[in-house]
Structures are given as structure tokens and as C-alpha cells.
């Protein structure tokens, strides 16, 4: 296995772990994924979980 293959594995693992971790953090913050426009900075639509 060469450097490229090792980097590929690390990259894929980082992406998968990153996506899972980000979704856990978002959920902890009371937010969730949403297609409502994605303008989360101004949208309290997702923070309803906190209430």
C-alpha cells in the first residue's frame, strides 16, 4: 500500500468521522439539518429542540 492509498484511507475516515461528529455537535446545540435555505445564521427554525 502506497502513500496515496494511506492518504485516501485517512481522508475518507476523516470525512466520515467529521460528518458524524458535526451532526452530533449540531444536535447538541439544538440544530438539525434542513433544506429550508440553509441560512442558519439568521434562522431559529432548527433551534426549536432547545425549547
Amino acid at each position: 500500500m502506497g502513500v496515496a492509498e494511506v492518504l485516501l484511507i485517512i481522508g475518507c475516515a476523516a470525512l466520515v468521522i467529521g460528518v458524524i461528529a458535526a451532526s452530533i455537535v449540531r444536535k447538541a446545540k439544538g440544530k438539525t439539518s434542513c433544506d429550508c435555505g440553509g441560512n442558519c445564521a439568521h434562522c431559529a427554525g432548527c433551534s426549536h429542540i432547545k425549547k
Binding site: 470525512l15 460528518v19 451532526s23 433544506d35 440553509g38
Partner: peptide, 15 residues
């Protein structure tokens, strides 16, 4: 819509 769709493609869908 486009921004969110592309973002989702390169995160959740890719993973």
C-alpha cells in the same frame, strides 16, 4: 437551495 444541496452532497452524501 443550491448551496445547501451541494454542501449536503459533499458531506452527508459523500460520507
Amino acid at each position: 437551495k443550491a448551496k445547501h444541496f451541494v454542501k449536503k452532497a459533499f458531506t452527508i452524501i459523500l460520507a
